[in-house]
Nucleic acid binder design. Structure first.
Lengths: 333, 333
DNA sequence: TTGCGAAATGACAACGTTGTCATTTCGTTA
DNA sequence: TAACGAAATGACAACGTTGTCATTTCGCAA
């Protein structure tokens, strides 16, 4: 029946003006007489006109979209996406998203190749695990690329939580309160977050001349923390435990109590992510919280700032915050 | 220095063939002689050619992108996005995403207006709370629109978890095991999930001629569940509690135990979302789990299926699953 | 009323692809 | 070798915008 798509030309004819005038009504309304503008608006309304994105971007040479590649989509990612999306809105960009498929092994080059076929002016890679071509990857020269990852990249801008710093902060918090050593419960081996948190823990201890004990391997879930806690309960020198997330920290605490020990009187515990209070009433767990939302905002801003100079390179670290509750005992007191 | 963008024409000249041949190499390689194809490929490589999305979609009249509007971006959304994204990949679509900004009040009409300026062939609205224009909204006639929401919509296709059914299932699970009544702890008032779960709970009780007791108001977090638990501990007729999520269910359980009651011996509890095991070691909580990932997949498939007939309308319910642990006592035994 | 500069409007090309249809080249058969 | 049909390739228009530059209209002063 109707023509499939209403074009500016159709509107122009209906309003009795030229094509260009319709264009002006949309892009620089002040340059059009009010009476003309009204005619055009009525015509647009009547015909149900919607500007054609493809034609517009073809002419303008840009899309107003930022690509986001999720190599890994997990719980913490929500706040980050939220930050990215909000910052994008604010700056007038939309997001174009693709995801690594389950099982598939995606390289940075592959991600860049796919993204560059899509409507994007720049892109953000959210990388939570190592990929094969990390060091050799070169971003397209005309497409600003920001990688969210704790590792430094030779050519691309990167943005990351300061996970290492957060872990150091937690350790120093223990040490400054008279603890002589800190045990560590890690997350999944392949997780970069877990690796960085472990690195920070090691560094903090070594900086004080303390030999780090063997870390206990966990898998992020409470049961693995519980298992670790059972082991730790038998170590007489264990007064402080840093767990790579809150769930495992809770597992540790429950195990310690099941073994007749008190938190924090016998053993102090710190976790990461500050989310235990959502699930445990009256939670006492002190925790290092990262500002994922802020991270997303920074990443997006970095892309937008680099649109004109895609080859620029920067490194942004977003610091963590220690949310203090009562799971750490001050031994000096 | 270089021309900003390398076009198919540049490639054609470099390869000594016509523009159209380059086009064919990309879109129907089999129709091009191998020797020619190689020349073209080399030229593309040498010049760093990347097809222009805008021009291509302008000509084709479609984008290969599905729009996703997140009215609310919360924890459970991750799995859903994951499902949407995976299904999109599989069918050769990318996602274009926008988000309601914090504080902003977005209507369906507003969301549709913004989406229709973007490169999308169809769209998905993820709606977790009521919006003002829900009943009056009409989707653009040429843009298939699917709304993820438990409410029926007069003109758009909808997809939803069967939250009401899940709640009914949990109640019947109690009742079939000899419980004479079920108390309910709700989530935030404005949440549609909470409303539906409450509705299912009511319906299940009324179907058996049981007068539903006054529901207890929670806010999704454990502390509100704890408060509810303290109240429930004093009700002698309370043997079964359905909490609108696992966190509150845990709060309830802790409160009951603090009051000297045992779960499940004195009081049985069921939650929603089956995520407590991540945070609590040896979790015993029976829980209704929704398949968010499946939900996302269905939503995307529904959009794609409707691309040719945007005005078609369907309603999809994805059933929940009761994950059985040991927090419910069989009173008949 | 006329003339003038500024404001408003219009004609046309261009962005980089793909579809249509015409033309050239190829491999086969007579 | 000529003739033929099929395969390969090419010329050109078109998609719906915006930029450039030309033209028309307007408001105001002389």
């Amino acid at each position: 029946m109707d023509k499939k798509n209403v074009s500016m030309n159709d509107v122009a004819v209906a309003a009795g003006v030229s094509l260009k005038t319709v264009s002006r009504v949309i892009n620089e309304p002040d340059s059009v007489r009010e009476s003309t503008r009204d005619k055009v608006h009525s015509a647009m309304e009547a015909l149900g006109f919607r500007a054609n994105f493809a034609a517009r971007s073809l002419k303008l040479g840009r899309y107003g979209c930022i690509g986001v590649v999720m190599f890994h989509l997990s719980g913490g990612a929500v706040d980050m996406i939220d930050g990215i999306a909000d910052a994008a809105e604010e700056r007038g960009f939309a997001l174009t998203m693709i995801k690594k498929r389950a099982g598939e092994k995606m390289t940075l080059a592959e991600a860049a190749r796919r993204m560059s076929q899509l409507p994007v002016d720049g892109m953000i890679f959210n990388l939570r695990q190592m990929v094969d071509d990390f060091d050799t990857f070169e971003a397209p020269k005309d497409l600003k690329t920001v990688i969210i990852t704790p590792m430094e990249h030779p050519t691309c801008s990167t943005v990351s939580d300061d996970q290492e710093g957060g872990a150091r902060m937690a350790c120093e918090y223990f040490l400054n309160r008279g603890h002589k050593n800190v045990y560590f419960v890690s997350g999944k081996k392949e997780s970069l977050s877990s690796q960085c948190r472990m690195k920070g823990w090691r560094a903090a201890l070594e900086a004080r001349g303390i030999e780090p004990p063997e870390p206990l391997q966990g898998d992020w879930n409470a049961d693995s923390g519980y298992a670790a806690g059972l082991v730790l309960a038998d170590k007489p020198d264990c007064t402080a435990v840093l767990a790579a997330n809150d769930c495992m920290a809770n597992g540790v605490m429950v195990a310690l109590r099941d073994k007749g020990l008190s938190v924090p009187d016998d053993v102090s515990v710190i976790g990461f992510d500050d989310e235990l209070y959502k699930t445990i009433p009256n939670s006492i767990l002190t925790s290092v919280k990262f500002r994922h939302r802020e991270l997303g905002i920074r990443a997006l801003n970095e892309v937008v700032a680099g649109l004109e100079a895609p080859s620029s390179r920067s490194r942004t670290l977003v610091s963590g915050v220690l949310v203090e509750r009562s799971s750490v005992k001050d031994l000096r007191a």
